[in-house]
Simulated assay, not measured.
Amino acid sequence: MNRSVIRAANRPCTLVVCRGCCCGNPRRHRGFDHAGQLDVLRAGALASGGRFTVRTTDCLGPCDQANVIVVQPSTAGRRAGARAVWIGFAVDDDSTEELLRWAADGGPGIAEPPAGLKPHIIRPPRESRTRARR
């Protein structure tokens, strides 16, 4: 079996951090360290020993709910029936720490989201829901 197939079969939970037009914009949420949040998430992924990864992307869509982070399930989470979970308003240290804990615990399909993160769960934009059904 080739290496890329093996890696895909064991893909960890991934935090996809929006850094488009509104998310990560210091004028949008004054006083919140957006770059620091990304540094903390990346350091957590590194410290996790590969239990989860972090990547950034351009605008995910729901700008009125910035900062948006999508928690993609691992391969095992997808096998358990999980789909990506969209988190909005992630602009405090508590939500950042809870995202780290959830991802390290396995993320969607493996571990329940921490109670403090549940109010941050948002509906994905319509075009994202349409793509997921294809």
Rank of each mutant, 00 (worst) to 15 (best):
residue 3 R to N: 06
residue 3 R to E: 15
residue 4 S to P: 05
residue 6 I to W: 12
residue 9 A to N: 12
residue 9 A to G: 15
residue 12 P to C: 06
residue 14 T to W: 06
residue 16 V to Q: 09
residue 16 V to W: 03
residue 16 V to N: 04
residue 17 V to W: 08
residue 19 R to V: 12
residue 19 R to D: 11
residue 20 G to Q: 14
residue 23 C to V: 12
residue 25 N to P: 02
residue 29 H to E: 13
residue 34 H to A: 10
residue 34 H to P: 11
residue 34 H to C: 04
residue 35 A to F: 02
residue 35 A to Q: 13
residue 36 G to P: 11
residue 39 D to Y: 00
residue 43 A to L: 07
residue 44 G to P: 01
residue 46 L to G: 09
residue 48 S to N: 01
residue 50 G to L: 08
residue 51 R to W: 00
residue 51 R to E: 07
residue 53 T to M: 10
residue 54 V to R: 04
residue 55 R to D: 06
residue 55 R to V: 13
residue 56 T to I: 04
residue 58 D to I: 05
residue 60 L to M: 15
residue 60 L to G: 08
residue 60 L to S: 09
residue 63 C to Y: 05
residue 65 Q to D: 08
residue 67 N to P: 13
residue 67 N to Q: 10
residue 67 N to A: 02
residue 69 I to L: 04
residue 71 V to W: 04
residue 71 V to I: 02
residue 73 P to E: 07
residue 74 S to C: 09
residue 74 S to H: 03
residue 74 S to N: 01
residue 75 T to M: 07
residue 76 A to E: 12
residue 77 G to E: 06
residue 78 R to K: 14
residue 79 R to T: 06
residue 79 R to K: 14
residue 80 A to D: 03
residue 80 A to F: 00
residue 88 G to T: 06
residue 89 F to Y: 09
residue 89 F to G: 14
residue 98 E to A: 06
residue 99 L to C: 01
residue 101 R to K: 09
residue 105 D to L: 12
residue 108 P to K: 07
residue 109 G to R: 09
residue 110 I to R: 05
residue 117 L to P: 05
residue 119 P to G: 07
residue 119 P to I: 05
residue 123 R to M: 13
residue 123 R to G: 13
residue 125 P to I: 14
residue 132 A to Q: 13
residue 133 R to A: 15
